[in-house]
Write a protein that binds this DNA or RNA. Structure first.
Lengths: 248, 248
DNA sequence: CGCTTCTTTGACGTCCCTCAACTCGGGTGG
DNA sequence: CCACCCGAGTTGAGGGACGTCAAAGAAGCG
């Protein structure tokens, strides 16, 4: 129970970083919990093409949104860390092509669409906050697309490590320079459009250059500035910390 | 003037394909026009990093949202055709890293954020419709990411042609098999993570296989089923046509 | 008709994939 | 307690897809 409240609080923090919400609105968010905590050890939470009636809030662990090719190849389009709601957009598009999988042991909280939609229609500020949250997600998608489309393996992985540094720091799960990242090299590859083998070689190179090391599912950035330069990283797309007044 | 109304009507059609809006809400959308029609012959409408106070509705032509690397390399993350609002998400995130450029002669209508935000806060159904529209955009982004990350040049271009077939058809700008696509081969490359040269070679191959031809800025799909198979195309991510009741 | 922009084609290099084997560590059961 | 096993990480050799560079046609536009 405590963990559910903690997760909702993390989600609320995420929202209020970008949107200002009144006390009543904040209370309404914190009252969202539906079922208890779900704890699948691993595997699919949503299969591609499935219709869902709830969004998934991450309490612990890492989720991935992914797309499958007929060949079996997989592209991870988004990672979700504690405090993120994977598929918040499913509230307005309950059937889409992607799946959601746990990349390791995970704890999640189910947020029913009905409840989320009711909040969004009752409180305009919450509707805008949800919209804004989806927009941040889309911004990360666009950056990831540019990353894969126009950078070499070094730049792609370097960028991913910079991004997670900031996201983990925001989520209170480490510092931007040192943080846990419980995924395999192959999963990293699925996220940046490479094979596990090539990820391995690239990680070695990044380590040898003294930029960043990744082992035992832990990232340690040795030199943020040089890593950011190698990544062509500009944090603007993660949206700066300024809650804006939402109602005109 | 007539053209402004036409463009707003196209935008409204786009929204009501996915969201049901009451007559009053529809009228409010149609009353949005701010300035008159803007007609830049070509070039940037929004530069990367710029803060904007309006969204851009496409009346005629094609816009691209893009991201720039330090090296000068460009990744087009989204194309916008008539009836699309590029940067609708800028309403809730007015400063981000991307730019918007016209890929040829274009006519656009500026929609001020203030007006859009006022509509969204006054009419919950409109807020959800905007959110849903942004979600469709994000879904296309995710698919594009998978496209670039996990497919060969043939699959990438084939997929792009299938996608635009459906989008153009929806927008009333042709059929899914034959439609205008006023972009250069290099711009196609910027969208799918290839160079113009390689796009050229791949187009020749696709034509030789009898799948699709692209010349004079016109796409003609010879065999939809085989092209869709080559593209691993499933239209689900473009969201099926069913306006849902929005208010619970 | 001369310019610019786009398309097309060739030769060559490189980044990354494929396939395959070996290593390592952690868990499990005999 | 050790043998085994399994997933993940590591490394090598060879090949294929795509990029780079360069130059020569088309095609629109003044």
């Amino acid at each position: 129970m405590a963990m559910i409240d903690e997760a909702l609080q993390a989600f609320l923090n995420r929202l209020t970083r970008l949107s200002s919400l009144a006390a009543e609105e904040q209370a309404a968010i914190l009252a969202l919990a539906d079922d208890g905590l779900v704890e699948p050890s691993s595997g699919d939470l949503v299969r591609p093409g499935q219709t869902v009636d709830h969004a998934i809030l991450v309490a612990e662990g890492v989720l991935a949104r992914y797309d499958l090719m007929r060949t079996g190849a997989r592209q991870i389009t988004a990672f979700h860390i504690p405090g993120d709601v994977s598929d918040l957009q499913s509230v307005v598009a309950p059937v889409t092509g992607w799946g959601v999988a746990a990349l390791g042991p995970v704890r999640t909280v189910r947020l029913p669409h009905r409840a989320l939609r009711r909040l969004a229609t009752r409180y305009p500020a919450i509707a805008l906050a949800f919209w804004r949250d989806t927009t941040l997600d889309a911004s990360i998608l666009a950056k990831g697309m540019a990353n894969i489309g126009r950078k070499t393996s070094h730049g792609r992985l370097a960028h991913l490590f910079c991004e997670f540094g900031l996201r983990m720091e925001r989520a209170g799960r480490g510092s931007r320079n040192v943080y846990p990242l419980p995924v395999t090299q192959e999963q990293l590859g699925d996220a940046v459009g490479l094979t596990g083998v090539h990820v391995n070689r690239t990680l070695r190179a990044l380590r040898d250059e003294g930029l960043v090391s990744f082992s035992q599912q832990r990232v340690a950035i040795s030199d943020w500035d040089r890593l950011a330069a190698a990544a062509d990283f500009d944090s603007l797309y993660l949206l700066p910390d300024e809650p804006r007044v939402l109602l005109d």
